[in-house]
Amino acid sequence: MISLLFNSVATPFWKWQRCGKYNLWTPNHPLSFLTISAVARKKMARVLVGVKRVIDYAVKVRVKPEKNGVVTQGVKHSMNPFDEIAVEEAVKMKEKKLASEVIAVSVGPTQSQEVIRTALAMGADRGVHVEVPAAEYDLLQPIHVSKILAKLALDEKADLVILGKQAIDDDANQTAQMTAAVLDWPQGTFCNKVEKTDAGLTIAREIDGGLETIKTKLPAVLSADLRLNTPRYATLPNIMKAKKKPLKKVTPKDLGVDTTPRIEIISVEDPPVRQAGAVVADVDALVAKLKAGGHI
């Protein structure tokens, strides 16, 4: 596709008129997508995606002996899986010429830059790291992050913000909704499918009873659910290229966002342990156990 594009650009204008058996500007012409993208370009969106660095989903987390948090030192971290889906959706929009630029934002300590690099390797164009020191990060809540994202969305003139529906560390499921509220933009949460229309977006959402369809205007804030897409893996050449992409560093203070804690952590404890029961030999023994338990 890319080489086709360059070829056509290299073709002198007067030859465009008669490119093989088609006229370029007819819908049947193999390059007719050029005319479509030229029209769409005016409306192409700048997309902001949020990426959070969390303990990897496969790690069994352990509560600290002090009971004030979980052990993070020496534990594998990666991008929040729902944020990978958000990045994938944004990059796909860029590939479909619906988006002009994808900006990946992460809020957190220095190591947050790792997940920004992952987003850049997946295809985001540039990154913004909003640095919050580790000591303060423990009490940073979605309310703070949503204000940061909202301010960046305005500063960067974003038309669309895509976030994961929840982070697998705090399981809050709040940031997209709150970012939309701060901006007074519509929210499309738990997205299963997103389609760009002339008027805005048509979104299929995952709800408790099945699926729901809504229409929103743009600009908007979306939150990605599991089945929106399957995120790509970053390839080695793209990881190398990502190292050269621009990454800007700012602080919440630069953005005028107050990060005063809103909560106090009283304790973080282990959940009650469930004891494994007996393994039964066969279906008859299972039926007997169910009877004994009063289930049948």
């Binding site: 979605p142 309310i143 399981d171 909704q177 939309a180 738990f190």
Partner: peptide
């Protein structure tokens, strides 16, 4: 804490400038 509550309450909280408590 259903798809409904999770969708609506954080929006309200942000408008009130408070940090919501999920589930």
């Amino acid at each position: 804490a259903s798809a409904f509550g999770k969708n609506v309450l954080p929006r309200i909280a942000a408008k009130l400038d408070v940090s919501p408590i999920s589930e």
